[in-house]
Amino acid sequence: MKNKLFISILFIFSLSLQSETTKEIYSFANDVDQERFYTLVDTYRCPKCQSSNLAGSNAPIAKDLKREIHRLIEEGKTDEQIEVFLSSRYGDFILYKPAIRKNTLILWIGPFALFLLIILFVVRWNITSKRQPKDLEAENIVKAIERTRLKKLVEDE
């Protein structure tokens, strides 16, 4: 029994090892380049699978783009040049952090504008709701005065 368990555990681990090795392996001239590669494939979005970055995607196009990024790094291209390479082909779509331009302005300013608007609204709402009790009090006083005047009028009749 114990033996069986041991073997099945071994089997499970051997499977995960195997799937690890099917991942593409890229070699680099130095550690800095390798670090850059991993940062870059983390930074860009996979054009095919919209909710994943290049690193996390196994789509054929993501593999191709990883290969291209590897090639560009090996050719000595800078990060900026690689970004130009990618965005001139796949557009802003693959940038998680789009450039500040007229058509992307709403992305950058929108959340702050919305936040400010909400703050303004909340503050205004607070002010008006605080004022309300006082107003009610004044109203009550007015009502009390009127009531006594009415009473007086009725008594005078």
Binding site: P47, K48, I61, D64, E68, R89, Y90
Partner: peptide, 13 residues
């Protein structure tokens, strides 16, 4: 075969 021209065209499928 390697999708070279396809990448230059921005093809993703």
């Amino acid at each position: 075969k390697d999708g070279k021209l396809a990448i230059d065209l921005g093809v993703y499928g």
